[in-house]
Design a protein around this nucleic acid. Structure first.
Lengths: 136, 136
DNA sequence: TATTAACCTACTAAACAGATGGGAAAATTC
DNA sequence: GAATTTTCCCATCTGTTTAGTAGGTTAATA
């Protein structure tokens, strides 16, 4: 299940994209518009900054800013970063050591295919697509 | 994420399908073959019995038994029952009251589409398919 | 220097995941 | 009818995750 971390991150990015500005947009503003907890959102941002998804600026006049144009952001990347992984079953998370039954597991091929389906789906959608939902 | 409930349930059903018998198969046997906790599996079974996925019989000579042929079991049904839902985001679970922002949510259409994709994927696979993984 | 805002860390309450354990009830066998 | 086997039901438990809250520090600007 996709949690609020990933979903809120997307909403923050969409909010930034829908309110373009030369300046930085403070999280206070975004949180108010989205009806979300500012503090909670602030916790989600660092991973996006470290991975060059957004640019964060401290101090007066600071806030967050997109560093690419909306069509250059792929939803799959945002979700992977904020959720930690897009794997639908724990057997497929790299961190986990391989299950010893994986060799002749009857279900593993299905999970792998579903995982690919999921990745392909979310990697096929950009922020720009989300801004015009009639597109899909 | 699909949890052990759904994954173990599938493994139990596959085990039953791969060891066909006129008689009931005790969970002790299945758990041993699958290397899973008998007690934990026993907890997962009631929902499958109530929904006529398997037939359970108490007492000596009892156990569990498939009531259909493997190709008549759809993976999506098993997962829905054991996981409670296949919805990838909480916004889509029927039990939840509708989000008040759903009318103009930029991401909801994507979650809906992903949900459909997921349902279609798992509803397109049967137990019989899982028994011959080279099929897909 | 005051103000604003990101950034960082710690804490918390509730739910969930993945079990374990005990015992009642049902069915069979001796 | 007693012993045995097995489902079935319920309670408990430990660790982790989720979705925050809260406070303080640092950075930047006015």
């Amino acid at each position: 299940m996709i949690t609020t971390r990933g979903r809120y991150a997307l909403r923050v990015l969409i909010d930034l994209a829908e309110h373009p500005s030369e300046n930085y947009t403070p999280m206070k503003e975004i949180a108010a518009r989205q009806g979300l907890s500012q503090k909670y959102l602030e916790q989600i941002m660092p991973v996006l900054i470290k991975n060059k998804i957004v640019d964060g600026m401290s101090g007066k006049g600071g806030g967050y800013r997109l560093v690419r144009s909306p069509e250059e952001y792929v939803v799959g990347e945002i979700l992977s970063l904020t959720e930690g992984s897009l794997a639908p079953v724990s057997c497929l998370e790299c961190k986990d050591e391989k299950c010893e039954r994986s060799e002749d597991c009857r279900t593993l091929p299905m999970w792998k295919k579903y995982s690919e389906l999921t990745k392909d789906f979310f990697n096929g959608i950009t922020l720009a697509d989300l801004m015009k939902p009639e597109n899909y």
